[in-house]
């Protein structure tokens, strides 16, 4: 806590100079605090571990040379990893997107306001002439930065593992056409960005929940609980009329970037839906936070 207060004081003193650079200073200090937490580093380590596990499992299963593909089980693209190590990136993202990634984002977003309130540092943050709106935007930007970093950690870990265990080279898209390795890499980067943007909705939801309570743990648990509930509801066929509006419904549409030509229909829906969630819960968080009594 004392460390947090020091940082908060540092932030407050940093912010004496007004102007755009000042906002940047606030953002920078937020980023540093977030990424220096052990909790954040542990989350990133878990995320980096998933592709390593998947890669080793696939390698062991196919090491007898039989190419033992058994049907369509497992995460998307898993059967193509033996064709090209780059597919491990897509498999790892498909494996982490339903749960690991949004859970990590839920932890960071849920902690954003409630965690500060919990440790008593929120009032120090507001002592600086930051303004609540600006602080909220900074918190959201930090959470989104975490989304991008978390996704890239998964992608890079998977790329390293794929290069180590499997052949690389020209790859076959799921439509059966061939693209060069460079284009494959570009698509992998694009997919990682789409995955990061897919988490925008959860991040806004987590931030809103975070403004509702003064307990960081409660905010994290609520966000992750909502995430699991929505994922379950998305599996119930009777609710198919509602499902297109669930933030997780189009998550796997990033796979459409591996078609040739790219099938944009679900991708654009996903991006639109994420923007909508961000707008609704972002403004709800603003409504709540700017009018809230800060007692801690």
């Amino acid at each position: 806590m004392s460390q947090g207060e020091q940082v908060a004081v540092a932030r407050a003193s940093d912010s004496r100079r007004p102007g755009p650079l000042w906002t940047f200073g606030l953002l920078r200090s937020e980023l540093v605090t977030t990424f220096r937490r052990w909790r954040t580093l542990a989350l990133l380590a878990v995320l980096a571990g998933v592709p390593i596990l998947v890669g080793i499992a696939v390698k062991i299963e196919t090491s007898d040379g039989s190419g033992g593909q058994g049907g369509g089980g497992g995460p998307a693209f898993i059967t193509q990893i033996t064709n090209n190590g780059l597919f491990l990136v897509f498999t790892a993202l498909a494996a982490t997107l339903p749960f690991f990634l949004p859970m990590a984002v839920g932890v960071v977003a849920g902690d954003a306001i409630a965690g500060e309130a919990n440790s008593g540092t929120l009032r120090y943050l507001l002592v600086a002439p930051a303004g609540r709106t600006r602080l909220l935007l900074t918190k959201y930007a930090t959470t989104m930065a975490f989304c991008v970093v978390a996704t890239l950690v998964v992608a890079l870990s998977a790329l390293a593992m794929g290069a180590l265990l499997f052949p690389l080279g020209d790859l076959t898209t799921i439509s059966g056409t061939r693209i060069s390795f460079a284009e494959g890499l570009a698509r992998a980067l694009l997919i990682a960005l789409v995955v990061a943007v897919s988490l925008m909705g959860v991040a806004a939801l987590g931030l809103f929940v975070s403004t509702l309570t003064d307990s960081g743990i409660a905010a994290m648990a609520t966000t992750v609980g909502l995430l699991i509930t929505v994922q379950i509801l998305d599996q119930i066929p009777q609710l198919h009329a509602l499902q297109p509006y669930f933030f997780s419904h189009y998550w796997l549409s990033f796979a459409d970037l591996m078609r040739e030509p790219v099938y944009w229909h679900d991708l654009t829906r996903n991006l639109g839906l994420q923007a909508l969630y961000a707008a609704v819960f972002g403004s709800a968080a603003w409504a709540r936070f700017t009018a809230k009594d800060i007692t801690a």
Binding site: A279, V280, S283, W286, A287, R288, A291
Partner: peptide, 16 residues
């Protein structure tokens, strides 16, 4: 004031 601010997210939902 709080209620007035919640009009914003409600309006976003309505427009969508």
């Amino acid at each position: 004031r709080t209620a007035a601010r919640y009009v914003v997210p409600a309006a976003v939902v309505g427009v969508a």
